[in-house]
Simulated scan of single mutants.
Amino acid sequence: MQKPNIVIRYGASNDDITVDGHTFVRHQLTGKEKHFLRNVVIDSLVKCGFVRRAK
Score class of each variant (00 low, 15 high):
Ile6Asp: 09
Gly31Asp: 13
Ile42Trp: 03
Leu45Ser: 06
Cys48Trp: 10
Lys32Ile: 05
Ile8Val: 15
Gly31Val: 00
Val51Leu: 11
Lys34Glu: 14
Gly49Lys: 02
Thr18Ser: 06
Val40Cys: 04
Gly49Asn: 08
Val51Tyr: 05
Val41Met: 12
Asn14Asp: 15
Ala54Pro: 01
Val51Ile: 15
Thr30Cys: 07
Ile17Gly: 03
Leu29Pro: 04
Ser44Ile: 09
Ala12Ile: 07
Phe36Ser: 08
Pro4Asp: 00
Gln28Phe: 15
Lys32Thr: 10
Lys3Gly: 03
Asn14Trp: 02
Ile6Val: 14
Thr30Ser: 15
Ile8Asn: 05
Ser13Gln: 12
Pro4Glu: 01
Gln28Asp: 13
Lys32Ala: 14
Arg52His: 04
Lys32Val: 02
Phe36Gln: 10
His35Lys: 05
Gly49Ile: 03
Thr23Met: 10
His35Ser: 13
Arg9Phe: 03
Thr18Trp: 00
Thr30Ile: 01
Gly49Asp: 10
Ile8Glu: 13
Val25Leu: 03
Val25Ser: 08
Val19Ala: 04
Ser13Tyr: 14
His27Ile: 00
Met1Trp: 01
Arg52Glu: 08
Lys32Met: 10
Gly11Pro: 07
Asn5Lys: 10
Thr18Met: 01
Asp43Lys: 02
Val19Trp: 07
Gly49Ser: 10
Thr18Lys: 00
Pro4Thr: 00
Val41Gly: 02
